[in-house]
Design a protein around this nucleic acid. Sequence first.
DNA 1: CACATCCGTTAGAACGTCTAACTGAGGTTA
DNA 2: TAACCTCAGTTAGACGTTCTAACGGATGTG
Lengths: 222, 222
Amino acid sequence: MENATRRERIRAQTRDEAKAAALRQIAAAGPQSLSLNAIGKELGMTGPALYRYFAGRDELLTELISDGYHDLADTVSAAATAVAGKSPAERIRALARAYREWALAQPHRYLLLFGTPVPGYAAPAHTIAAATRSLREFLEPLAELAAVARHPDLENQLATGLADRDGKAGWNGVVLRLGVTGWTRMHGVLSLEVEGHFETMGFNPALLYEAEINDLIESAVG
Amino acid sequence: MENATRRERIRAQTRDEAKAAALRQIAAAGPQSLSLNAIGKELGMTGPALYRYFAGRDELLTELISDGYHDLADTVSAAATAVAGKSPAERIRALARAYREWALAQPHRYLLLFGTPVPGYAAPAHTIAAATRSLREFLEPLAELAAVARHPDLENQLATGLADRDGKAGWNGVVLRLGVTGWTRMHGVLSLEVEGHFETMGFNPALLYEAEINDLIESAVG
DNA sequence: CACATCCGTTAGAACGTCTAACTGAGGTTA
DNA sequence: TAACCTCAGTTAGACGTTCTAACGGATGTG
């Protein structure tokens, strides 16, 4: 038993090393040039050896994506607990800041999650759960702001489509609209920033991001 | 002369055929699996023959990107002239609609422009011009709405950074902020929609998009 | 007609994923 | 201890990719 566990441990360890090497390579030259052979070389073994650990290149990539969603969600959750006592607006700002810092600290990883999807990839259930988890942290403080209805059709669809996703919550449509809107606005700024589209435009994207967050908060209180 | 022109014509024609085939392949299986050999086969010739027309895979890709920016800009410009007489709000809605329809009609192409950037790609000058051209069409109707200042720091940076980009215009900072904000909001919705992130969420992205546009217009009039 | 230019071919190097068969070490069991 | 089995890693090789190089043939030019 204990020996079997030992094998499992070193196996998991080399899996992690391989994933770390993969992230380094993606950071260096983009997801397209991720090479199992090169990863093997970095770990001190040959290419085909990695097929003992991953079914193939695609599985390694999907695992990196899945890990990324969980890591991002954990980061946002940590930020949420860190500012638990403050005002709703302050909490929203803190969550948005954590979201942005995660993306800018590892832009390649953010693009892996939200950039062009890899062709054969279909998100497993627990990954979608993690993906929405980072979004869900925003709902609580948003709900505390006295939200006003502005787009009834959309809000109704969201209320029926997303409400009882997790058993208990049951968020109202206005809060869900604010959450989704916040998500798309953050992503709009972040993705263009990470891809360098703002580079020649001579302004600080952080200001744009903050402006979007503040607008969202203002529109929530009415 | 006339013979030389003839050669040029068929050369340009096979170039276009190659690009069309490339777009088909990208639409079918993503940008990663774009293969010069396969394109050649589709045109009835061998792979290496294409090197008479393109320096390599990367050049073909960058040309597709460049073409895409121009096509998108042309589409938005056409929409602008089509609604020249109407109210500013109506014009903005029409431009946004054209922008969205272009993206949804050819999602792979939208992702080619705004998804994960290809590693070796650096946009040539005329491409950046085309990229900003689709955005610039929004500025005129936005300026006609009596725009109120909301984020002075950002607006000042934009005014000094973007104002005299093209010789004459000289847009004020508030208008530029609305333009950039509109861009990031449209992109935020469109990119997530095109990548299928809304698929399991049970709402119609068109409503979200319209809501964003209407919010932008409302916030512009103050 | 002779010549030059250009287009497409085949051959091959280098690199990628991935499969198959083999070797050797680790851990389990009689 | 001895025998066995599982698993990690190796090499060999099929196949596809980009891309270069050398060659043939067609097209257009003097």
